[in-house]
Structure formats: C-alpha cells, structure tokens
C-alpha cells in the first residue's frame, strides 16, 4: 500500500483477522449478541461504532498528555458519551428515519468495551494518525463479525436479508419452503448469536493454528 506504511496498514488489517476484537479478544460480545437478529441493525451498529471509534481515538490521543491518569476512565467515558449524543442529535435533525433505527443502540455504543479498550490500550499512548487508524481498524473488525452474524441469523431465522424475503414465503409455502424447509426460530434469539460467534472462532482458529492459546 502506497498511502500507508506497512506498520500503519497493519493497524487496520490486524483487527480484521488475527487480532479481531470479537473473535480473538472476545470484547464487545454483548452488543454482538443483542442486536444481530437483523442484518440492517448490524450494519447500522457497525457504521456508528466506526464513527465513534475513529473520532474518539483521535480526541483521546490529542488529550493524552493532559488527561490526569486518576480520572482517565471518566474522561474517556465523557468523550464516548459526548460523541454518541452528537451523532444521535445530528441524525435526529437530518436523518430522522435512521435515527429511529439507531436509538436503541446509543446506550450500547457507550458501554461497548472495545471502545474503552482501545482508548485505554492504544490512544492514550500513541499519536493521532496511528490512533485514528487503530480505531477504524478495530471498529471494522467488530463490524465485519457483526455483519456476518447478522447475515446468518436473519437468513436462517427469518428467511430474509435486509427485510427482503430471499428463500420464498413461509406462509404461502413458496420457494425453499415448498420442499419442507422451515425457518429456525432459535436463530432469532440471542443464544444463537453465541453459537455463530463460536463457529466463526472455530473456523478462524482451525485455519490459523497460531491463534490457538496454550491450554
């Protein structure tokens, strides 16, 4: 990559695969379980977190030398909460429909441990540009997993993608349903997300054995 040095590019690429916040660090699991019953909700959540993480990491990195270490967690929380409220208010004024979809997740974004984790582990000790890349990278890694889970849960649980039926009509018995296929109601409930995450972790570690922790 010409624009980014190899080291910088890794900040974005690492969290997408070998250092994924959900599958490797097992952070941010709560929102991954709660909101992935639908692909659209997963995507909205992913985009919001990318914004909050990118900007948040930059702000924390700018302030890293002036934040007193005693109250750094509170300062970080204030930054996240402020950003989330700003996003919420701006959306309410200029993209009202989208803001209604997002409203449920606002609280979840503030409590997302990936965000606090990256502030604490990276932005407090690194420069602005690198922090920005790290934020975007981790949020993307989180978003990718969310979208994968949302895809399978909506497809298998409701037979739709983005709300559009793709497997036929379950009531009129058309498409796949005509040969006896049924939607799996289990996929809509949160435990199913845990199983999907588990399968992703399994696939990822069996492809790259270096990721398996020593027992």
């Amino acid at each position: 990559m010409a624009i980014l040095s190899k080291k910088d590019a890794n900040l974005i690429l690492d969290p997408l695969a070998d250092n994924n916040p959900i599958t490797i660090q097992v952070l941010g699991i709560c929102s991954a379980l709660a909101i992935t019953a639908e692909l659209k909700a997963s995507l909205v959540m992913a985009v919001s977190v990318i914004f909050v993480m990118g900007v948040g990491n930059v702000v924390i990195s700018l302030l890293r030398n002036v934040i007193p270490s005693k109250i750094r967690i509170i300062a970080q929380l204030i930054v996240v909460a402020t950003l989330v409220i700003v996003v919420d208010q701006v959306l309410k004024a200029f993209a009202y429909e989208l803001s209604k979809t997002l409203s449920v997740f606002v609280g979840l974004i503030i409590t997302n441990c990936i965000i606090m984790g990256r502030f604490e582990a990276f932005a407090l000790g690194n420069g602005v540009w690198r922090s920005f890349l790290d934020g975007i990278g981790n949020a993307l890694g989180y978003g990718v997993i969310l979208v994968i889970i949302g895809f399978f849960r909506e497809l298998l649980g409701s037979g739709t993608l983005f709300g559009i039926p793709v497997l036929g009509d379950p009531i009129a018995k058309t498409g796949l349903y005509s040969i006896g296929y049924e939607n799996n109601g289990f996929m809509i409930i949160p435990p199913a997300a845990l199983i999907v995450v588990g399968i992703i972790i399994w696939v990822q570690r069996s492809r790259n054995r270096a990721l398996i922790e020593e027992a």
């Binding site: 934040i67 007193p68 270490s69 005693k70 109250i71 509170i74 300062a75 204030i78 402020t82």
Partner: peptide, 19 residues
C-alpha cells in the same frame, strides 16, 4: 504536573464546561 489533585479538579471542571 498532571498528578496534582488541583490539576485533576481543574481538568474535570474544564472538561465538563466544554462538553
């Protein structure tokens, strides 16, 4: 000296006012 109590308090006040 960011470890001083007075600094912490002033930082908190400024941050709250700004935000």
């Amino acid at each position: 000296n960011t470890e001083k109590n007075s600094y912490t308090v002033i930082f908190a006040i400024i941050m709250v006012i700004v935000v």
